[in-house]
Design a protein around this nucleic acid. Structure first.
Length: 289
DNA sequence: CACTTGACCTGTCCGC
DNA sequence: TGCGGACAGGTCAAGT
């Protein structure tokens, strides 16, 4: 499911919902989802307090008062859903609809706080994971060492954007956009959306893209992902935010999952093709090879 | 080396 | 209805 806007939405939600809470109890059903030993959990997780929630690329980091961090990757179907203890009492609470629904059979990790509220890590396909590690070691994991810059940061300029792509000149622009070592956070939805916005065919080789086209792509990547954050992310299948609610970006999508419908720019029929091994949505008139 | 393909899992949808 | 196959928003390891 989640790309940068979805993970950012979860991060913002968790920052409001769980910072300051103290962990009472943790249960996991699956060693792949949460491989840490009981000794680590007992020493560094139980009784710790949540101090901050951060994001880098599509990775979430929940910092703890023990100077350890829960590092979380949601991969395709992961969810982090908070359920407030007050939901079990009066009607009308935002989380009321979740009471009794979680945990469910996709719940891999169940964290209970001392006030009886819960944070559930759900993951239907079990690709995602939670890892407990010292906060100081997080930048040293392989992914953090190789991942590219955050495209929405104010100091990320178009020249750096172009320069990083040009190192991958022999591959397709779609594969390069999806490569987290080039820039962080773009996945299949926002790759298709931004390539349509810049009127670039996803199969074009990076080396054939002009600087004028790169500048449009830079602007599109940023505007599409900023719009999605504003809309709470995209719910195509599984994604929900920290309160269990869906995002509405798909209502604003121009090509993603719109095959058979009209291109909003020229009216031609949007088609679905395969590029870089992924389902890819284009307007065949606006986006020429 | 750079790049592409399969594997990891479960669920759903589509055609027969 | 049942069943097989393709496919799903991500990332690695293994292959070319």
């Amino acid at each position: 499911m989640p790309e940068l806007p979805e993970v950012e939405t979860v991060k913002r939600g968790l920052n409001k919902l769980i910072v300051g809470k103290k962990i009472k109890f943790v249960a996991s059903d699956n060693a792949h989802s949460f491989p840490n030993s009981k000794a680590d959990v007992d020493s560094f997780l139980i009784k710790s307090e949540i101090t901050d929630v951060r994001r880098r690329a599509k990775v979430l980091m929940i910092d703890l008062s023990t100077s350890y961090t829960l590092v979380i990757h949601l991969k395709m179907t992961g969810q982090l859903v908070f359920v407030d203890n007050t939901s079990r009492f009066g009607a009308g609470h935002p989380n009321d609809s979740l009471v009794g629904l979680l945990p469910d059979k996709s719940t891999r990790v169940n964290i209970e706080f001392t006030d009886k509220s819960h944070l559930y890590f759900n993951d239907q396909r079990k690709f995602g994971w939670v890892r407990l590690m010292p906060t100081a070691e997080v930048p040293n994991i392989d992914f953090m060492k190789k991942v590219g810059p955050e495209p929405l940061e104010a100091d990320f300029k178009v020249d750096e954007f172009i320069g990083r792509f040009k190192r991958r000149s022999r591959t397709t622009i779609k594969a390069a956009l999806l490569d987290q070592a080039v820039i962080a956070g773009v996945g299949n939805i926002y790759a298709d959306e931004s390539l349509w916005g810049a009127a670039i065919h996803p199969s074009r080789l990076v080396g054939s893209i002009t600087d004028v086209e790169f500048k449009k792509l830079y602007t599109e990547v940023r505007s599409v992902m900023n719009l999605s954050i504003e809309k709470g992310g995209s719910t195509n299948r599984n994604y929900v935010n920290a309160e269990g609610k869906k995002g509405s970006y798909m209502d604003f999508a121009r090509v993603f999952c719109r095959e058979g419908l009209a291109c909003p720019r020229c009216g031609a029929e949007i088609v679905k093709i395969r590029v870089a091994g992924r389902g890819t949505h284009i307007c065949p008139v606006c986006q020429k090879i």
